[in-house]
Design a protein around this nucleic acid. Sequence first.
DNA 1: ATGTCCCAACTTTTGGGA
Length: 254
Amino acid sequence: MKIATWNVNSLNARWPRVEEFLTTRDVDVVLLQETKQRDDKFPSDALQELGYSSAHFGFNQWNGVAILSRVGLSEVVRGFGDREDEEARCIAATCDGVRVMSCYVPNGRAVDNPHYAYKLEWLETLRLRVAAHPKDVPLVVGGDFNVAPEDIDCYDPSAFVGATHVTEPERTALRAVTDEGLTDIFRHLYPDDVQYTWWDYRNGSFRRGWGLRIDLLLCSPHVTNRATAAWVDRDARKGEKPSDHAPVIVEFSL
DNA sequence: ATGTCCCAACTTTTGGGA
């Protein structure tokens, strides 16, 4: 089984690349973030024609998350349901016995911005949802976490002093999620590999190798113990109209 | 530090977000 996560930065703008990905990468489940769509604009029919059932959670031009699956999709839960002004940042479903969650963690914007506190709160809510998950059901929590877990996941930690994505509170909040029994599968399989998943559109960051590894697949032991490989699909960051994020894929034997 | 991209809108340029 192959599960991918990909922040597409607008599904509408990215449709040709998403279609290319689905027809060439042979993935069973895809977790999307930043679809930037309302549910009624989501291309579920076009996805079905490509062989994927889908579920989407989106209110407007911001955020938006989805799950695509060609191995079944049931028990869909949209969002956390924890606040009146909830944003579309989380959706869960069961695909072939694996519970998957597609997460778009708030960016945080700046350490002194209210959005940063919101980011930490959001991660704590995610931790509670993971803690409440039955331990006998395989779980993969994937998405754009907007946190580089360690310095190895940042092209230049000195350039990020005082910036979001690398601060200790963010890393601690992310670690609190994984401490509930999940494993950052890429780092687990390749402890020393330097790989990034996001490069700013500006400054020629991709060409210069200025990236961060902020898109993660957090796996429960059932999946972690059966994982055979994980990789970043850097080719998806190249070519015509790419997202600023590359997909991350995990392969495991059910 | 900021060389881009994407979206909405009292749209053909601007502002917000990343």
